[in-house]
């Protein structure tokens, strides 16, 4: 019996959908109908995303520029995306692919809410999901052209192996920070940076943060972030002096309004050897 009314009275294509098991919106299509199309290069792109752990959680930042090649095309694009109440995803790379990922994650959260099982997705689960999506797409030779940082903070349970007399789990808050890119590559560290920031800001972050993850306060973390964003704005030709900061703590996700960097360019007139100067 065919349980999809839209099929009733309509000839069935036995080659594709022998038992009519697909609901209307996901009925298989002929994959060659519109020709095979794949992403071969990113078009409208975002640059670096920075993130690191601090005492109370995770801090992440990205500027608000989406470039069209070398043209600064869109100057007010949010590249940090909250997923549920515990996680933020920050994206560099192709912005249309990022918007697609945002839609995927939105539906994922809606499905999770609909289940009504009192379970919410943890940052680690969201990262795992993204890594599977990214790897599946690159395996189709049609990658989602992004590098993503996933940062989050969620309560979890931890057993105390040191004390077998007290097997009760302790509720602990777990910071999570990991990377995934268009190849499906993943890694995790207490400081992470994508794109140009991986070259320019990562060393600065390591110096400022590593071994101080449990000490840094939110104010200190914000200062470090600002310093790194400033260096990136000076050095990265695809960057902008407007950026947003996301903090994920036990109180949930907070994404700031866009902040403007205070920069000075007076040194520029002393530079010799480029451009139109005659001497």
């Amino acid at each position: 019996m065919d349980h999809f009314p839209s099929n009733w009275g309509r000839p069935r294509n036995d080659a594709i959908d022998q038992y009519a098991t697909y609901p209307i919106h996901s009925r298989p299509k002929d994959s060659f109908a519109e020709g095979v199309q794949r992403t071969q290069q990113p078009i409208v792109t975002g640059t670096s995303v920075l993130a690191f752990k601090f005492k109370d959680g995770i801090m992440m930042a990205a500027d608000t520029l989406a470039s069209y090649g070398s043209l600064a095309r869109f100057k007010d694009v949010q590249r940090l995306h909250a997923v549920g109440n515990h996680t933020v995803v920050g994206a560099g790379g192709d912005m249309s692919d990022f918007q697609y990922i945002q839609n995927l994650l939105e539906q994922l959260i809606v499905d999770e809410i609909s289940a009504q099982d009192h379970h919410t997705l943890s940052p680690a689960e969201i990262h795992e999901y993204l890594s599977q999506v990214m790897y599946a797409r690159r395996s189709k030779i049609d990658p989602l052209w992004n590098s993503l940082l996933v940062g989050g903070f969620k309560d979890g349970e931890k057993y105390q192996p040191s004390n077998p007399r007290r097997p009760l789990p302790l509720t602990v808050y777990l910071r999570f920070l990991a990377y995934v890119d268009l190849l499906g590559t993943t890694y995790s560290a207490s400081t992470l940076a994508t794109g140009y920031g991986a070259h320019i800001a990562q060393p600065l972050l390591r110096k400022a943060v590593e071994s101080r993850e449990e000490i840094l306060t939110e104010e200190q973390a914000l200062k470090i972030m600002e310093a790194c964003m400033k260096v990136l704005f000076y050095r990265d030709a695809r960057s902008l002096n407007k950026y947003q900061v996301a903090t994920i703590t036990k109180d949930g996700v907070k994404i700031s309004d866009s902040k403007t960097l205070d920069t000075s360019w007076s040194f520029a007139e002393n530079i010799r050897g480029y451009g139109a100067q005659t001497q």
Binding site: P23, H25, S114
Partner: peptide, 13 residues
């Protein structure tokens, strides 16, 4: 209903 909602979301974001 969930399928219908998903399909609306897919189409109109």
């Amino acid at each position: 209903a969930r399928d219908e909602c998903a399909s609306q979301r897919d189409l109109f974001s």
